[in-house]
Design a protein around this nucleic acid. Sequence first.
DNA 1: TACTTACGGCTTTTT
DNA 2: GCCGTAAGTA
Length: 797
Amino acid sequence: MTDGTDFARRTHYVPAIRIAHESLLSDLPTPKISDLARSRGPEGASDYLAGLNTEQRLAVETTEGPVLVLAGAGTGKTKVLTTRLAHILKLGKARPWELLVVTFTNKAAREMRERITHLIGPSAEGLRWLGTFHSVAAQILRRHAELVGLKSSFTILDTDDQERLLKQLLEAANIDTKRWTPKSLANLIDHWKNRGWTPEKLPTTEDFANGKGQTLYAAYQARLATLNACDFGDLLLHNLTILSKHADIAQEYRDRFRYILVDEYQDTNVAQYLWLRLLTSSTGNVCCVGDDDQSIYGWRGAEVDNILRFEKDFPGAKIVKLERNYRSTNHILGAASGLIASNRDRLGKTLWTEDMTGDKVRVRGVWDGEAESRLIADEIETARRQGQKYKDMAVLVRASFQMRAFEERFVMLAIPYTVIGGPRFFERAEIRDAHAYLRLIQSEDDDLAFERIVNVPKRGIGDTSVQKILQIARHDGVSAMAAVRDLITSDELQARTRTALSTFVRDLDRWRALATDTRHWDLTETILEESGYTDMQKADRVTGQTRLDNLKELVQAMQSFETLQAYLEHVSLVMDLDKGAGDDAVQIMTLHGAKGLEFPLVFLPGWEEGVFPSQRSIDEKGEKGLEEERRLAYVGVTRAKSDARISFAANRQVYGRWTSQLPSRFVDELPIAHVEAESDTGYYGASGGMKEAKSRWDDAPSFGSGYSSPGWKRAQSFTAAQTPRSAQARHAVIEGDGRLVATADPKAGANWKCGERVFHQKFGYGNVQSIEGNKLLVDFEKAGEKRVIDSFVEKAG
DNA sequence: TACTTACGGCTTTTT
DNA sequence: GCCGTAAGTA
């Protein structure tokens, strides 16, 4: 595989920036966009440019050569992108299928398509190459699959399949799957793929399970090939292999894609970057739009570096900065800007707005998570009474586990809401079971699907038999189904198992025959019925009904796809149902899910240390992780058009245990001029009948009397300094009966020694490997090496 | 083979 | 606190 730099050297970018006014006047209508001209009336043609400001217009009209548009939050980024597309089409510079338009998320792709359709009409359907990186890469890979040892009918594995497969490999290699979990290997391999490393190219510094990393990775890839499958990372990685090894194919695509547009460029990873380089032709007509302050996918391998380096990568690049914000009021912008200013790694932009109306950002501290959901529900009701629509309000959380509290409260008060994201529909067990049946019918080779449902519902084919089948299949180099067909004619299995298997095979064959002349959703229903799956669920009084409902929803969803194949492809790439946000309902979603959206009223709950910023993020990535969390906070605040309301609770149940929480450091970073803090005297003050509660409150450092109070500030400085007291407050674990079961060592900060044996509440016993300030690298007996803060561990005698 | 109990991980975030 | 998996038992 060529790496990007080589490619750059071989390529000549033509920095010809032609500002397109003349072209506009010369008016070159193409039939493809005639709808546009018609719908815009006689003045028509340039109407769509009229609503743009100078910078936006420059970004739209600089069609030739590389362009980087640095678009701050709310500066009309999508408008620029879509208008630019329309403009290119209008000038007749390219036809819809000659444009490559990639986004990062499905939602962004969907929205982009909608907005372009709105702008240019039905010809937008010709935009065949508009989609996420992964979906476009999948399209390309299907055309050339044989070049990387796959059939074009390859399946795309999801994380669950991946982990099962890796688990088998780890067990085969006699590796302790508790110490070295399939999940961590899956993440690691994904990370490698995101960097564009095939097993052969894996740097020697990368490893897993003491020197077995590369071997495992290679074995995994080999296994995928025999299964005619690939994972998400492979979609891009195989593309890189194909495009760099086959110059003719690469050239074909470079000729095809006359213009490339990339949304959310700050979120691209190395593999995606290399992919873009391979597809960019010598004209260098590539336009990347992004905002370094909104890079929030570092954990997926995103390299902010890509955007910071753009000018070097694409010589002659023109850079356009969009800094005028059309979305939010001055206070919201001020609060967000003040927050993000604490980050060091940024290109630096200054957003401004003319909207000086509106309230300051409101910050509220409450007693516990329940009080928080009560408060927000009340404020929603109040806003509603004042004429706001539910759908104009959103609750944006850091992690999906925070959603439940709001759902419960909203149900109780009959506030309509939609959860976007959260537990994924297609990842539910029953849905995956149904898919496994369909996959097995579609392709006998799908061993993973076979394993999943061969004994679901119970058919009397136990684990021992399944293992035997798989062993024989692997030995003979055939699929599990082929092995089964053989085995039922032999004496190798018990008669009972044999009968069960032959019934299973007969059923599958019958369904497969049925598939040719039955609509796929009817087929699904038949299978679920005849396999006994429905009955199995009916027998389950606890979850059966919900699961059956989900299956009904599945059958429904299938109806909007032409073929079973198309449906399965969609499922593996999108992993979720498109929920129509048409109803008037409050939107509950994660901050990641909210990127690119805007709402008049935004609630930002859970601004507490450990929750937001997420403890894990800080533990794993340190300062970098923290900066990413801060960007996430920035994204959150900038979603608000007129009102942003931040809240934090002093106590929260985590894993079913009560823990006391400190307000997020981000709360203190908000510039006071744009913030209005309210303390809830009912909880903070001396009055109020919450005796037990109050005593618990007293366990935590006092910061409750108001935003600017010394107490609050002090609480923050405790956090920053990691003094024993803050550590104690953060990690005091109170059992349901109020008993204090564990606190951090009050002698924290004491001198640690390398090799010393320590105990950690979560990770157990381990030995100190190295010490950096208050951070210890500990090799835990069960959990492996972890970086922990010293106040979290105790000396273990 | 199937049912029961014990235990550990989980809560980042998405394709 | 809940879920799924692993180990133990009939």
